[in-house]
Amino acid sequence: MSTKVYKTGERLDSSNAATEQPKILAILDGGDNVVIDLSGCNYVSSAGLRVLLYSYKVAAPKGLKVSLAGVSSEIRDVMEMTGFDKFFEFYATAEEACKE
């Protein structure tokens, strides 16, 4: 089992949720952990949060991990307030996440 990094674009919302989700799931289908690199992302909507959580829900029963890297403080804050944070480990950078 290895860890692969998936880097999102500037936004994760309904405009791209349907296209981003399968790419993350494909990594999990390959039996690898995923680090979702949000360092270039400045907005995650409700739909975007669900992309992250859905990935976790698929990964967990397979014994795989979904970690988040480079999450801005504002997005982290939103995740904490809405309870989406509790499913993930957060790392400053994707490299750091991969080391773990």
Partner: peptide
Amino acid sequence: YASTGKYSMQVDELKNLIKK
């Protein structure tokens, strides 16, 4: 009443409060 109301996430914020 939601700090995330400006992102229309008040439903999740309230549910998270109740869960906690």
